Amino acid sequence: MSLRFTRWTACACALLTLAGCGSTVRVDPPTPEGAAAAGCRALGERLPQKLDGVSRVESTPASPYVVVWGEGEIALRCGVSRPATMTATQEVPEINGVAWFSDPARPLLFTAIGREAYVEVTISRRHTPENVLVDLSAPIKAALP
């Protein structure tokens, strides 16, 4: 093999890894404790294998607090910190009994609030957030009082 081909292959592999196009998607897991950790583990078991037409994929590092669908198109992290920009008096829409905070500065990020643990969901522009949040609300309600 030529040095040029080897370099091109190494660059292509690196770009695929960074883009999340491989079979595993990199997501930094949160570190919930106590009841929040137990609830997040229960949530992971209740989440669907398919969400808005895309299948679950592996994430790295492996964590019971992270679930990813569609090569990173939708990523859920359970046990995250309270959203820093959320105020105590802020009105938040409710979808099927779950309140969802949306930070205007980060329009693709939604956080389920008012539960045993905060659940953060990032949704790519390929998906309709309302569809995804409707499908996630029932498992969140069941696993996180």
Rank of each mutant, 00 (worst) to 15 (best):
V132Y: 11
A19G: 15
L15K: 02
V80P: 01
Y65T: 04
R41H: 03
G53E: 11
T17H: 09
D135A: 15
L16F: 08
A112D: 00
P104L: 09
T128G: 08
A112C: 01
V132K: 03
N131D: 13
L43F: 07
F101N: 07
P30Q: 02
I113Y: 01
S59V: 05
V68W: 00
V119L: 11
G44W: 03
T6L: 13
V66H: 04
V98G: 00
P61E: 11
M86R: 15
R56F: 03
W69S: 10
D103A: 05
A10G: 06
P104D: 05
R82V: 11
F101D: 04
P83M: 09
S59P: 02
S2N: 14
V68P: 05
V68G: 09
G34P: 02
V66I: 06
P83Y: 07
R106A: 15
S55W: 09
K141V: 10
V68L: 05
E45G: 11
K141R: 15
G72Y: 08
T9V: 14
Y65L: 00
E116H: 01
A138I: 02
R56H: 08
T122K: 12
M86D: 01
A37N: 01
C78H: 05
I123K: 01
R115Y: 06
L18H: 06
C78G: 00
T60E: 14
V25E: 04
F101C: 07
I74S: 11
V92K: 07
A142K: 15
S102Q: 15
I95R: 02
G97W: 03
V54M: 09
A142G: 00
N96T: 07
L15D: 00
D135N: 13
R7A: 15
C11Q: 14
A35H: 05
P104M: 07
R125G: 12
S2H: 12
T85F: 07
S63G: 06
E91N: 10
P104C: 06
T89V: 10
T6R: 15
G34M: 06
V92W: 00
G53W: 12
V57F: 02
G20I: 08
V80M: 08
S55T: 11
S124W: 10
D28P: 05
T89I: 07
W8K: 13
T6I: 14
Y118S: 01
E58W: 06
A105R: 11
E94R: 11
V68H: 03
A62V: 10
L51T: 07
C40T: 04
P107W: 08
V92G: 01
V98Q: 03
L108N: 13
A36R: 04
P104A: 08
R115P: 08
W69Q: 12
R77C: 04
S2F: 05
V132C: 09
I95T: 14
A105W: 03
A84E: 15
S81A: 15
L136W: 13
N96M: 13
L144K: 12
Y65P: 00
M1N: 12
E73W: 07
V25F: 14
F110R: 03
A19H: 02
C78Y: 02
K141P: 01
W69P: 04
V132F: 10
G72C: 10
I74V: 14
